[in-house]
């Protein structure tokens, strides 16, 4: 095994052994999205009103609140995995790749955290309707 070129350093090591877990989690969250996002989109089109009081009351139901939390987890995990592949495919230099994957991780975690906290605040009665 050489130490000179990039290819020489990795030759013979095999894969990093992370690929199949990434692939599998993308499928697991895809099934989660299939169920939860379909429910969410149908529910949105069926909502009688988008006014604040109606939305707060809707999210206040335990079933809706928990489904929305699971949706936030599944969607933000799935988009983190998917966008990571896009970044890795189209951004070739190392610095840009690290920057965008870091940005993506921050976006996914912050987005999910904000969504989940907001759902819980509404569900626990912290928002006057």
């Amino acid at each position: 095994m050489g130490t000179g070129t990039g290819l020489g350093r990795v030759r013979g090591l095999g894969s990093a052994k992370h690929g199949s877990m990434h692939w599998w989690r993308q499928r697991v969250t895809a099934v989660g999205n299939l169920l939860l996002a379909t429910w969410f989109v149908v529910a949105l089109f069926r909502l009688p009103s988008f006014e604040h009081a109606a939305i707060v009351q809707w999210i206040g139901s335990p079933i809706v609140a928990v489904a929305l939390i699971l949706l936030a987890v599944s969607v933000f995990y799935h988009l983190r995995l998917g966008l990571q592949v896009i970044v890795e495919d189209y951004i070739h230099e190392e610095a840009g790749k690290v920057f965008f994957v870091l940005l993506l991780n921050f976006y996914a975690i912050a987005g999910a955290a904000l969504a989940i906290f907001s759902i819980l605040k509404i569900a626990f009665g912290g928002v006057p309707a």
Binding site: I55, F76, L79, S118
Partner: peptide, 14 residues
């Protein structure tokens, strides 16, 4: 993603 978070955050803010 951004609209979803904005929608929930706005609803939680009042």
């Amino acid at each position: 993603g951004l609209i979803f978070v904005w929608w929930l955050t706005a609803a939680a803010m009042g």
